[in-house]
C-alpha cells in the first residue's frame, strides 16, 4: 500500500502513531503522579490496572503495534535521509531547526532502550528483585508498589537512568508535538503556528513532571 512506502504517507504514520504514544504517556504520567498523593493512592492505581485483566493484554498489544510502526519507519526514514545526504559541508550551518529535531532518531533509540529497562524493572521486576513488589510484604492484600517505587528511586543509579531517559523523551516530544500539525496538513500559516508553541510548552511540562518523580524521591523530599 502506498501509505507504507510513500514519503508523505510514512510521515503521516509517524505523526499519528507518535500522537497516540503521547496519549499513552499522558495517561501514564497522571498515574505516576499519584505517587505524590501517598502510598494508598498509587497502590490503588496499580490494583485498578491489574484488575483490568485481559484488557491489559489487549492494551499491551496495541502499544506494541504502535511502537513497532513508529520505530520501524523512524529508523527507515533516518537511514534513507542519511543515504540522501552522503557528503557534509565544510561549514555546516543550520538557521531555524532545533537540537531536538536533529536528534529524533537518537532520543528515540534512547527511549527504546529505556523502555526495555523500565519493563524489566517495574513490570517483570528482575533488575532489582530485593525491592520488587512481588518480593515485598503485601499491604492490605495488595502489592506494595509505593515502596518498590520509593526504594528504587532512592538508588542514585536507577534515578539517574530515569532522569536521563526523561530528558530524551522531552527532547523527542518537543519536536513531535510542535510538528504534527504541519505533518497532518492542518497548518495554514508558517511554522509559527500557535499549536507549535503550545506543543513545545506541553513537551517541557511533561518532561518536568516526569523528572520530578525520581528527583523528589531521590532527594527524599517525598518519602
Amino acid at each position: 500500500m502506498n501509505l507504507f512506502k510513500s514519503t508523505v504517507g510514512r510521515k503521516i504514520l509517524m505523526a499519528v502513531t507518535g500522537l497516540m504514544l503521547v496519549g499513552f504517556i499522558t495517561v501514564h504520567l497522571l498515574g505516576n503522579l499519584s505517587v505524590f498523593a501517598g502510598a494508598d493512592a498509587i497502590n490503588a492505581y496499580a490494583k485498578h490496572l491489574h484488575d483490568l485483566g485481559p484488557l491489559v493484554w489487549v492494551f499491551r498489544l496495541v502499544m506494541l503495534l504502535l511502537f513497532a510502526v513508529h520505530i520501524t519507519f523512524g529508523v527507515q526514514l533516518y537511514l534513507e535521509n542519511r543515504a540522501a545526504t552522503p557528503d557534509n559541508y565544510a561549514i555546516q550551518k543550520t538557521l531555524v531547526t532545533t537540537f531536538s529535531a536533529k536528534t529524533m532518531v537518537f532520543t528515540g533509540l534512547i527511549i527504546l532502550a529505556f523502555l526495555l529497562y523500565h519493563l524489566l524493572h517495574f513490570t517483570v521486576q528482575i533488575t532489582n528483585p530485593e525491592i520488587s513488589a512481588q518480593n515485598l510484604p503485601l499491604v492490605d492484600g495488595h502489592l506494595d508498589v509505593f515502596t518498590m517505587v520509593t526504594l528504587s528511586f532512592q538508588k542514585v543509579f536507577i534515578s539517574l537512568v530515569y532522569i536521563v531517559a526523561m530528558i530524551a523523551l522531552t527532547l523527542h516530544i518537543f519536536h513531535g508535538l510542535s510538528s504534527w500539525v504541519q505533518t497532518l496538513g492542518l497548518s495554514t500559516g508558517s511554522s509559527q503556528d500557535k499549536v507549535t508553541y503550545i506543543g513545545k510548552i506541553v513537551a517541557i511540562a511533561y518532561g518536568l513532571a516526569y523528572i520530578a518523580i525520581p528527583l523528589l524521591l531521590l532527594a527524599r523530599i517525598v518519602k
Binding site: 510514512r10 535521509n81 540522501a84 538557521l95 531555524v96 531547526t97 529535531a101
Partner: peptide, 13 residues
C-alpha cells in the same frame, strides 16, 4: 534519491 521531510524548516529559511 532525495530524502524525506522531517519538519526542520531549514528550506524556508
Amino acid at each position: 534519491g532525495f530524502g524525506n521531510c522531517t519538519n526542520h524548516y531549514e528550506c524556508e529559511a
